[in-house]
């Protein structure tokens, strides 16, 4: 069997007296869409923060493509192919939509003395612009490119811009923390389609949701989390009952 894209081994996180994650072990295979559901405080976001490196586990191990990344800071994991997003939407609010996406592509650009002295070569700049345009097109944000992110009219667009930023680094695994949260039914529909499209383009996706009714059709596998543990893996319908 191929090495899984992501693997956690007996991952635990303790906040003071609270055990938020309890020896969690699971694997994510390439090409999956993995949904995680669970009630408030189940430890879903904590799990994501551990995977992305914003929090350090109390014990346990995280492997990405077979490499132990447990001690890596977030930016190294991003370079390796992990793209985090946050439960509370985070954008570069002071910048335009296009600039947001461009910053998302940070890891795709190169520094160095020659580029510092002479500027980025024209061809590289064109490639970058093409990349930004592609992402904008993919996420349906093209017509807002010159708008400040803070003035994006609907929350749905903000959510999509967040995904667009995450796509910039060319990730292998995209982590979405409640991408459907706070969206209208049509917004949920659109976000679902976006996830599907990204999946079709070869991305592995993990996302969190706490109301599972609306989303279970989007994922290929579903975990239910409760009290820092996984009830794994169940067919979606049974999981639905378990979470009630």
């Amino acid at each position: 069997m191929m090495t899984p894209l992501l693997e956690t081994r007996r991952l635990s996180k303790q906040f003071g007296g609270l055990l938020a994650l309890d020896e969690l072990s699971f694997q994510v295979q390439r090409g999956e869409i993995l949904g995680i559901v669970g009630h408030n405080g189940a430890g879903k976001s904590t799990l994501f923060h551990l995977i992305t490196g914003f929090l350090r586990p109390t014990s346990g191990e995280i492997l990405f493509e077979g490499h132990p990344v447990t001690a890596w800071p977030p930016y190294r994991r991003v370079r390796r192919g992990l793209a985090p997003t946050f439960q509370q939407t985070r954008l570069f609010y002071g910048l335009t939509v296009e600039e947001n996406v461009r910053l998302g592509c940070f890891t795709q650009q190169r520094g160095g003395l020659r580029r510092f002295l002479l500027g980025t070569p024209h061809r590289e700049r064109l490639t970058m612009q093409r990349r930004v345009n592609e992402i904008l097109a993919l996420t349906g944000l093209e017509r807002f490119r010159a708008q400040p992110a803070s003035q994006l009219s609907s929350y749905g667009y903000q959510r999509r811009l967040e995904v667009a930023i995450a796509l910039g680094s060319g990730p292998k695994l995209l982590l979405l923390d409640e991408p459907f949260g706070g969206l209208s039914p049509s917004g949920i529909e659109e976000m679902g389609q976006l996830i599907q499209t990204l999946h079709d383009a070869g991305l592995t996706i993990m996302f969190i949701e706490h109301r599972m009714k609306s989303i279970w059709s989007y994922c290929s596998r579903l975990f239910v989390m409760s009290g820092g543990r996984l009830l794994i893996p169940q067919p979606a319908r049974e999981a639905l009952h378990a979470s009630r």
Binding site: T52, F54, P73, P74, Y75, R76, V78, R79, A83, P84, T85, F86, R90, L91, F92, Y93, G94, L95, R102, L103, G104, C105, F106, T107, Q109, R110, G111, G112, R115, F116, T120, I165, A166, G168, S169
Partner: peptide, 23 residues
């Protein structure tokens, strides 16, 4: 330069800057 991008990301949102791969 590349550094300029990193600085702007840092100014706008430090956490998000890390999330897009800025050390």
């Amino acid at each position: 330069s590349h550094m300029g991008q990193a600085l702007v990301a840092l100014r706008e949102d430090e956490g998000l800057a890390q999330a897009v791969g800025v050390p």
